[in-house]
């Protein structure tokens, strides 16, 4: 699948090895295997990771605990130095930019939300949200006005003067989100932002997140270990295992064509209706009499009732309104009960 949007963040062959002698191993071997590393007593937290993140997309990095997601995203933001590789942000290699420029890029272009919220306990909600602006030397009135906007945006109006410990986990993370949005970043990192929250709140926050993204259109790198969360939010997903990216694809592709058994294992128990879109279950061609038309990007889950209740098939159309195929109740039922079709 080609993506027409320009690449915002381009990460090529990034390695992060922990332990002494990491550089040497990478000089000796072009691509050391896990065994090589074990022999050298190193931990391969990220191994040869390459991803391209396009402007305006939600890119999810998914993997089990310890698979290297945080390490990768910290390499992308250069919170840690990769052992090898290249990270280009808007065409500049982040790993070689001088400290001064890096600070400037982070101040103006990047935002990050942390798993453990990481709010500053001595500041109020408003001050926390205004903190990035404070660091930039923005005057008090301006930064507080802006902070008020973002605090309202995340639904915490009225709690500006609370301290973090006076808030629930979900509210705290809203503050974390507000803070990361205060500078209007182009690139937004979220490292398991909702993992510390209980399932109900998590769902609410995911909705909130989608609502915000519909408003703001940021370029997003979102980390999660929860596949459900990944498919709910992602435009594309990279699956990590033991530091390696095993597959990068849309949620649909992952479900339909898992690259390895490992990915297949993940996707197996996911209800397909949640993932598949009409365009991947339709039959080609057009029908003469149809019950109506539906966009090819619609998820099966969302339109299943409608299709199933009608006697006639539906016409599936693409973004330009052209017919690209048809879909009937039977195809929908196949998906719902997990019967393989075709």
């Amino acid at each position: 699948m080609t993506n027409p949007r320009p690449v915002k963040l381009d990460c090529r062959n990034v390695w992060k090895l922990y332990g002494t002698g990491a550089d040497r191993l990478l000089q000796d071997h072009v691509a050391p295997t896990l065994d090589d590393m074990r022999e050298a007593g190193l931990i391969g937290a990220v191994r040869d990771a390459s991803v391209q993140i396009h402007e305006g997309e939600i890119f999810v990095i998914m993997g089990l605990s310890g698979s290297g997601k945080s390490t990768l995203v910290r390499c992308l933001s250069r919170l840690i130095e990769p052992t090898a590789g290249e990270v280009n942000f808007e065409g500049r290699n982040l790993l070689t930019v001088p400290e001064k420029d890096l600070i400037e890029i982070r101040r103006k272009k990047m935002g990050m939300v942390f798993q453990q919220f990481a709010l500053l306990p001595h500041l109020t909600v408003l001050q926390n949200a205004a903190f990035p602006l404070d660091v930039q030397g923005v005057d008090r009135a301006t930064r507080e006005a802006r902070a008020r906007e973002v605090v309202e945006l995340v639904g915490l109006k009225g709690r500006e003067d609370y301290y973090p410990r006076e808030l629930s986990g979900g509210q705290q993370q809203r503050v974390g989100i507000a803070r990361s949005l205060a500078v209007e970043p182009d690139l937004w990192f979220l490292d398991e932002p909702f993992s510390a929250l209980d399932p109900l709140i998590r769902r609410e926050m995911q909705d909130e997140f989608l609502r915000l993204q519909a408003l703001l259109h940021k370029t997003i790198v979102f980390i999660t270990h929860d596949f459900d969360e990944a498919i709910r939010l992602a435009d594309r997903i990279a699956v990590m295992k033991d530091g390696e990216i095993v597959q990068t694809a849309t949620p649909e592709e992952l479900v339909l064509n898992p690259a390895t058994d490992y990915v297949g294992e993940f996707t197996k128990h996911i209800p397909r209706a949640k993932v598949l879109r009409l365009s991947s279950i339709m039959s080609p061609g057009d029908a003469e009499s149809v019950a109506g038309q539906l966009p090819g990007t619609a998820r099966v889950e969302d339109v299943a009732d409608q299709i199933e209740a009608a006697d006639l098939p539906f016409r599936v159309i693409d973004g330009a309104g052209e017919a690209i195929g048809t879909v009937d109740g039977r195809a929908v039922i196949d998906v719902l009960i997990g019967r393989s079709h075709g």
Partner: peptide, 19 residues
């Protein structure tokens, strides 16, 4: 994480220490 917050908001070393 607090260090990370400081770095990601673009703190200079002095800001990191005192803020």
């Amino acid at each position: 994480e607090v260090h990370d917050v400081g770095k990601m908001t673009g703190c200079t070393r002095r800001q990191m220490m005192w803020k």
